[in-house]
């Protein structure tokens, strides 16, 4: 128990050390998640547009 206490205590600098690691983790993770979601969204939009434009072309060809 005591060892854990010492580890998290960081020699009295716990606030500074842990907020540094915490802030870094939050920024890096949120950028990763945002980039990943954005990529998935774009891919989905692209697939939808592709099938739409396919139908669009077929309709255009059939009409006249």
């Amino acid at each position: 128990m005591n060892e854990i206490y010492i580890f998290f205590g960081m020699g009295g600098y716990a606030l500074y050390v842990w907020s540094s690691f915490g802030f870094t983790l939050i920024i890096m993770l949120s950028l990763l998640v945002k980039s990943y979601k954005n990529n998935k969204y774009n891919l989905k939009t692209y697939e939808e547009l592709k099938s739409y434009s396919k139908r669009f072309k077929e309709n255009n060809v059939k009409k006249p």
Partner: peptide, 12 residues
């Protein structure tokens, strides 16, 4: 991931 996203955006 971000470059792939940009390439897809260009295709869109």
């Amino acid at each position: 991931i971000r470059i792939q996203s940009e390439i897809t955006l260009q295709k869109i």
